[in-house]
Design a protein around this nucleic acid. Structure first.
Lengths: 224, 224
DNA sequence: CGCATGGTTCGATCCTCATCGAAGCATTCC
DNA sequence: GGAATGCTTCGATGAGGATCGAACCATGCG
């Protein structure tokens, strides 16, 4: 009846519970093998394989073959953003639990969004970085200021533009409803947080839990 | 396996072609009757009715009964945002047409997004309003400045806060990938554009086409 | 009241697609 | 080479759900 982009095709890919679980798992940012995703989705390996090839055909996933392992990952930040948007609606219209569970609370504070940090911590961080003029915002375009470049460089975070992917990008946070920092810089900061052991990834969840001292360090460096 | 928000449920609602067409039609912002939506989706009335009740159950639509007419509309800006996000991915991964058709071009320039203007024109307008300090941006929060309040009031646009809905909001544009203005002010501006006959809605499309003089007027008032 | 219009509910049909077991490829390790 | 691991393809089964015609409510008009 009307042509245009085939939104039903994309949405129906996400609309199957098994595939939705897989995508949800991949929102953690790390690429996973078919067997891990099968486990995650609670289906057999053949079933998972079939789903994965559909998601590949649909352009939602990328595949990296390494020897006999095949790692599936989200196709990009745009796909991740779409899934966040769907999660946001599902949260809003879903049966509102009288009281959010503990894991939910942890997720709100800090979680992984594809490859960078999201949640209250991340939103506060971006605010602070903008305040300190280490980053400059111009709408959704976020640029690194000269002082910011040297600042991050001093922290051991390289910000040279190598890839086509932007260094900084704003990403809308579904729990806070404000932006946090994505892009290669956002990814590098998350890497540092994990590498410094300021926080650890919660097993089988997107939640990121800071240790008491780790939180202090994080606040000292990024929220000062 | 994992609980959390039921994203598959929401996505599968959008994942049916008939329902996707209906939602797409409702992205125009005007509420439509069941028969109009049936026509739009290319299905019979009973089928459409069944789809509509599913969308209602899913919380994606609102219903306003007026006499024997029942008007269905999108449940809110968050739902509209999700659909825009899905459209964005579908555009990106979809079969890239060698050359975007004329309607596509018009859509990129100016279109309706739920109840406000989107597209290049809208993005340019927000930029300009921020430059002129009529609006103040603080992340996705956009506020009306005192000078902005009087400015819009002089244009006959009331900006008093009546509803719970925010006056200003940033809305991400899928074609330009930058923000444009949503909220009651965004809606009021679109209303003015139509009321002043600066532009007309393209029939059966979200495209908004400016007349030569209308464009001049629009640019004089909002892009000066 | 009776008719027309707009809409929903019911029932039956049909088809897509998710699922899994078994078999088949590919890669690596011994 | 042979065995083991990781994954995909094939084939058969089954269930959910999209679809429409017909019948059924509700509202408005004369």
């Amino acid at each position: 009846m009307r042509e245009g982009p085939d939104i039903a095709r994309i949405a129906s890919l996400v609309g199957d519970p098994a595939r939705a679980n897989m995508l949800n798992a991949l929102m953690g940012g790390t690429a996973l093998t078919a067997s891990e995703l099968a486990l995650e989705a609670g289906v057999s390996l053949p079933t998972a394989s079939s789903h994965l090839s559909k998601l590949m055909d649909g352009g939602l996933l990328t595949l990296a073959s390494q020897g006999r392992h095949r790692y599936y990952g989200l196709a990009g930040a745009q796909v991740a953003g779409m899934i966040e948007a769907i999660i946001g609606v599902a949260e809003a219209v879903g049966p509102k639990r009288v009281r959010p569970g503990p894991r939910d609370a942890a997720m709100r504070v800090a979680r992984v969004c594809y490859d960078h940090l999201a949640g209250e911590q991340a939103v506060a961080m971006l605010d602070r970085l903008l305040d300190r003029k280490l980053l400059l915002r111009d709408d959704n375009q976020i640029r690194l200021s000269p002082s910011g470049a040297s600042h991050f460089s001093a922290l051991g975070i390289e910000t040279g533009v190598k890839a086509r992917r932007p260094v900084c990008r704003a990403c809308l946070d579904w729990s806070v409803r404000r932006s946090h920092l994505a892009g290669t810089l956002g990814a590098a900061i998350l890497d540092k947080i994990i590498a410094e052991k300021w926080a650890r990834r919660e097993k089988d969840s997107r939640a990121v839990v800071f240790s008491p001292t780790g939180r202090q360090e994080f606040e000292r460096v990024f929220l000062a």
